[in-house]
Design a protein around this nucleic acid. Structure first.
Lengths: 339, 339
DNA sequence: CTGAAAGCGCTTACAG
DNA sequence: CTGAAAGCGCTTACAG
């Protein structure tokens, strides 16, 4: 039998015919793990089968296998956008963890649009994924109860939602860390570039900061909290609004590194020196933060681990085991922007 | 028939039984497009079928369909890493263009490692994708001839390789644009942060710059070209090497925005003002460039369009039609960093 | 216009 | 230890 280079892939039947045995025997051998022959076939037969399979590069047709077993070994992942570095890193964690347990990850962008999210989820289900990792959950979203009602195995990632299992950073704690740091540095007039109000990440980081700030005795009026897009431009616009509003703060907390970078740009435009005139702290400690011309202080969240942990969580859900949400601890990296 | 909320999905057979007709009739109707009944069934029957299908939310099992048709409607995409913003944006273009023609995109990271690349390609083929978009081609790579020999439909994206169809930016032209710009601004002592020598993007951008520079009458010794990683840290390290080497250049061309940002950091560390003391130009014009504290000049490449174009190219390859590589035109965005 | 049959490539009880 | 059969959910010639 030649190594296969033609159109048609080698099938179980081809192997069986070549060896003069029944396809079911080949199947049995190839699906029990090598050491435990488990009565699948005699060791001699098993060896002949495995040798031939390796020689011709046999790879079972996953469509046929799925049709029979009712499992696709596919994990669907829905994120707002992979061009958000934070989600891209989490996805790398997902891909790695999924591969380790025999799944492939299948990812799609929803642009943080609820209609698109619903369409993409349906697309994933139409593809018959074994489970779903939702990375774009909205606090007011209604797709989750529907998924639960349809008994679809799923977990949330990055953003949490009360009542559903999730793998996230402890964003409340992250906000607290920033409040403590800026308070210690003597800042008393601070503003928060808070992100999108529909995302738990934004809400929790902001709430963690504000609550801790007030507990420390600080004052922070509501109009010091400016909701914004998560990206660089959103951060710049939010900072512009803050600086236009009157007395400039001595420190800014942006709940996202990219928003923080945008804010740094706005400060410079207004002739203010980042660090000296106004401290800036970001969130996620993306690889850029440490390398910026003025290195950015940032809350480090274990992004890849959040992705890996989501996979482990989902695996338990698929198996019907009880699960507990995971909230991973953040740490603060202090750099020149707020030193 | 109730809307399906149980474990088992509704099948063609279920629909047929409910309507008292044969499954093959249901299949025929559901697969011819609505307006052209094309003798699939009487209009009356067709209508009943479509209504019931919509009512119960029938979605055909793609595994069963694939097994029968020998097509998965899956496009495999291999990229170095989605956490590289450039690839993430290209992937968004791929996803959109693929959906438009009835395919789903299935993406994986290879970390720019040749072994990993081979593994990931094999994984994609084992999943029986209908075609492959290779975004991590190495100039010295040998996986491409093997793929061609096995008659796998594939195209390259972002990085080209002589003899294989690709969708890329005209990187040579991009390098030329930068040379012309810096020359016009009066710079005569320039260095190139050149990226990885195995990537055609790096090689072409650098060659385009150098060749044009010399054609303009400029001098650029070989040790002014410093190979580097594509990321921020790689750019910083390269710039450090350049600054340590002796006479500082008056301009730096980094073949990647992130490398350019790292270089800006290194300049600042050495007390040099970006723009005033040393111009910096990047490549790709990622969303960050315009929003940086010192806005970065950058060659704009049509990233999403490169992805979309790769899909169209691949579709032609899958159909067995002749294809021509696509090289999309770049434009230069001049900003404060080199104004 | 519609039905009946075969078969895509697997897995999995069930015999023997 | 191995074979034979059934069936997962589709599509597609082939009849009539």
């Amino acid at each position: 039998m030649e190594k296969n280079t033609s159109e048609r892939a080698v099938t179980l039947k081809d192997l069986a015919k070549e060896l003069g045995i029944h396809p079911s025997t080949v199947s049995r051998v190839l699906h029990s793990d090598p050491d435990s022959a488990r009565g699948a076939a005699s060791e001699a037969t098993a060896q002949r089968i495995r040798e031939l399979a390796a020689e011709v590069g046999y790879s079972p047709d996953p469509q046929a296998t799925s049709l029979r077993t009712r499992r696709t070994q596919l994990l669907g992942v829905v994120v707002p956008r992979l061009s958000d570095l934070v989600l891209a890193i989490m996805y790398e964690g997902i891909e790695e963890a999924a591969a380790r347990i025999g799944y492939s990850a299948f990812v799609t962008n929803s642009r943080d649009d609820v209609d698109e999210q619903r369409r993409k989820v349906e697309m994933m289900l139409a593809r018959r994924v074994d489970g779903l990792i939702i990375g774009d959950s909205h606090l007011d979203g209604d797709v989750l109860p529907d998924l639960r009602h349809r008994a679809v195995p799923f977990v949330l990632m990055n953003r949490r939602h009360p009542g559903f299992p999730s793998s996230t950073c402890d964003d409340t704690r992250g906000g607290e860390l920033v409040a403590e740091h800026l308070w210690d540095k003597g800042h008393r007039r601070v503003c928060v570039i808070a992100g999108e109000p529909y995302a738990s990440t934004a809400v929790d980081r902001t709430a963690g900061f504000v609550d801790r700030w007030r507990a420390l005795g600080g004052d922070i009026p509501d109009d010091s909290i400016v909701w914004s897009r998560f990206d660089t431009q959103g951060g710049r616009e939010a900072a512009e609004r803050i600086l236009a509003a009157g007395t400039a703060p001595t420190a800014l907390f942006a709940v996202n590194d990219f928003a923080a970078i945008g804010a740094m740009g706005a400060l410079r435009t207004h002739g203010m020196a980042v660090g000296a005139d106004c401290a800036v702290v970001g969130y996620n400690d993306t690889s850029l933060a440490a390398e910026l011309p003025i290195p950015l202080s940032s809350v480090r969240s274990p992004m890849a681990e959040i992705g890996r942990s989501a996979v482990r969580l989902l695996q338990r859900v698929i198996r019907g085991e009880p699960v507990e949400s995971v909230r991973l601890a953040p740490t603060l990296q202090v750099r020149e922007s707020s030193a």
